[in-house]
Design a protein around this nucleic acid. Sequence first.
RNA 1: CGGGAUGUAGCGUAGCCCGGUUAUCGCGCCUGGUUUGGGACCAGGAGGUCGCAAGUUCGAAUCUUGCCAUCCCGACCA
Length: 492
Amino acid sequence: MSKELTARATDYSQWYNDLVIKGGLADYSAVRGCMVIKPYGYALWENMRDQLDKMFKDTGHVNAYFPLFVPKSLFEAEEKNAEGFAKECAIVTHYRLKTDEANKGKLMVDPEAKLEEELIIRPTSEAIIWNTYKGWIQSYRDLPILINQWANVVRWEMRTRLFLRTAEFLWQEGHTAHATKEEAIAETVQMLDVYADFVEQYMAVPVIKGVKSANERFAGAEDTYCIEALMQDGKALQAGTSHFLGQNFAKAFNVQFLNKENKLEYVWATSWGVSTRLIGALIMAHSDDQGLVMPPKIAPMQVVIVPIYKGEESKATIDAKANSLMQELKSMGIRVKYDNSDHARPGWKFAEYELKGVPVRVAMGLRDIENNVAEVARRDTKEKQSLSFDGLSTTIKNMLDDIQVNIYNKALAFRNENIREANTWDEFVQILDEKAGFVSAHWDGTGETEEKIKEQTKATIRCIPLNNKQETGTCILTGKPSTQRVLFARAY
RNA sequence: CGGGAUGUAGCGUAGCCCGGUUAUCGCGCCUGGUUUGGGACCAGGAGGUCGCAAGUUCGAAUCUUGCCAUCCCGACCA
């Protein structure tokens, strides 16, 4: 009983932390606000990254890499963007240390080595990238530019939470340049769709696609599109954003191109990103009091085989059987581990792999082999059944597919149950306090009202859903006329 | 960054108020053996900058100050 988890009902935050730490995804580090992503967590990220990368390339994008440091003068060029991030920037002011004469064995910042111009550690890369694009774009023939980069960024957050909000995190950021507004908007929407497809089909987390209100919009964007997911505690989580940047960065960095009519025009831009925060979404969408629940498609380990043996002789028999099953599964492209280590007994292994969220566990002992069966347990439903070895690998493959669908459907049902309409202020507050989840309500469209609602309830407008139903109504707070409902929630 | 709590072996902890032999216990770890169908048992053993740094003192895990980190609540956060 070395790894007891806090139950969700007891302390949701602690439950989440326990899963991350005890599940082996990440660890705290010696640096404030920064975490170590451990091999198991990084393997998960690699699977996510590889799939996303494929999807980006399938839509015509290429990868590149831009610097970590952004000179302050470039950073501040697009004013709204700079203002939006100013309060959470790390800044490099010096480039050298020296031994501290007054304190032997210690180092101090060398005051002689002050930088002429401070370097901002990127909280996002629009500035450095648009400064670069300026040199790459002269004519419409140079467009579009469809670049993505996998990188780390730093946002100096006051309060951090593993995966959900850390000072440094890993992400990808796409930055595209287009000749027309229509094309840029189409790109923004296309990438939102890519994100939604990825999160729903691979991470099995249902999302709502929408547009952010002006208050919640990315600093420097004309429009911010987003996917919003719902966690088991009823709080919403922004899982990805795609921004239509208009000509804001083109104007700030003077990026113009000659069109077919030989006239100079400013370039249209987009940017879009998802981060390791998605791992937090995955954890909170599927996991239970026994531990993590990994969606098979991106699980670092899809199947684990645990032998149950008595004595070396039976072990050899089981090893042979298990290895042949493992080879068969591997040849089908399934990520499988045979845990024949002798330092843990089966019961311990069962609990451990449940904690780690491995979708399918196969246990086999002599008794099973004699009967030509294996005990197969699935993590999502905790069902165990004895299944014939004949065609077992195919059975398992189908089971993985079924688990993927099942956990998505389960999360979808939960999400749908937790979207509630509120028509009065009292109703609105009551739902937020007693049920949480998304609240669909009329809003008068002003930032002031949104701000007041946030002050009074801590709920924000998560998004205005795409293809939202238009209906006349009155604002939940002010009673002013409204043309559509928007989704409110308390959010991470 | 404000309020609160915490920091003693990998993890969880006793000791701290009231300073004084060799820092307590459990889990885990190592060795050997018996075991193995839901977190095994016996025996032996290893492992400690008591978060870090100053200070008070003959003597500091214990008292004082500063710093660092983590958690919770706030403020902040596309």
